[in-house]
């Protein structure tokens, strides 16, 4: 079954059209990536899916239900979002921020219960921030903040997680750990990803925005091939075999594709 289905989405900022007639499918349990050069509309696409932007046209279905017919609480119980906005106004502790992930489950004045606390503890343990629980969020490093935001999304206990370049501020160890964690969690994931090698490594299927022929989608290995990367990102690169059988890695030679590099 399709967890998320987007049909004929068109988005614009003012009169400038960013995305035109984009359709997208996220099957249940899959890991779907969105890649593309800066300014191609990755964030715009995600934002119009989670409702921060109102698209000009298009339909969105979550678990087969039209998202227009769901209120934001219902959506928040099925879909968590890790956006790029992660500044917080006042001094909250890490634990308090992660607890905010429980908001969609709480009625007015309902206090936090055992279930909420468990879910917060688990989420913090999974991203490795249990030690930071009582620290102030504003005092954390960029990478720590990002993990807190991720823990908040995990505490939301949704089947679907939308992420907008979630590993931006993370060192390589945490980049891999976070993606491992997401893939092993059994959650359905739709994520904008900067690093093409990470996308190649983790995604079942990939949507490439800003490609010469428009939107391109397919299994990760088919989308991320030399010619298409070169055409879309304007870089010189090749795909090389690794020691691990069947796994390839993208190697870059510079940002100017007209200077072809000889390689086997």
């Amino acid at each position: 079954m399709d967890k998320l289905r987007i049909e004929h989405l068109t988005c614009a900022y003012g009169k400038r059209i960013i995305l035109e007639d984009v359709s997208l499918l996220v099957p249940e349990g899959s890991f779907v990536g969105i890649v593309g050069p800066n300014g191609c509309g990755k964030s715009t696409l995600l934002k119009s899916i989670y409702g921060a932007l109102t698209p000009l046209a298009g339909e969105r279905f979550l678990d087969g239900t039209d998202m227009k017919k769901m209120n934001s609480r219902e959506i928040a119980r099925r879909m968590a979002v890790v956006g790029q906005e992660n500044s917080v106004t006042f001094n909250y502790t890490v634990e308090e921020i992660v607890m905010m992930g429980r908001t969609p489950y709480k009625r007015l004045l309902e206090p936090d219960n055992e279930k909420d606390r468990d879910s917060v503890q688990q989420a913090m343990a999974r991203v490795g921030i249990t030690d930071l629980a009582k620290r102030r969020y504003t005092e954390l490093s960029g990478g720590e903040k990002q993990r807190v935001i991720l823990a908040r999304a995990l505490a939301q206990e949704t089947d679907l997680v939308l992420l907008d370049e979630p590993t931006n501020h993370l060192d390589i160890s945490y980049q891999l750990r976070i993606f491992d964690l997401l893939r092993e969690s059994g959650k359905t994931v739709l994520s904008a990803i900067h690093d093409l090698n990470l996308a190649l490594m983790y995604c079942d299927s990939i949507y490439m925005l800003g490609a010469p022929g428009g939107l391109f989608c397919g299994p990760a290995g088919e989308v991320l091939e030399e010619k298409r990367i070169r055409g879309t990102f304007d870089v010189n690169c090749s795909l090389e075999n690794t020691k691990e059988k069947g796994r390839k890695v993208i190697v870059y030679y510079g940002g100017r594709p007209e200077k072809e590099v000889e390689h086997e």
Binding site: K47, Y50, G51, A52, N71, S72, R73, E74, I75, A76, R77, M79, A80, V81, G83, E85, N86, S87, V88, T89, F90, Y92, E96, I97, M100, G101, T103, P104, R152, Q156
Partner: peptide, 15 residues
């Protein structure tokens, strides 16, 4: 509280 993480984020938390 949720609103202190930004309006967009609050929206995704069901506010």
């Amino acid at each position: 509280n949720a609103l202190q993480c930004g309006e967009e984020t609050a929206g995704t938390l069901g506010v």
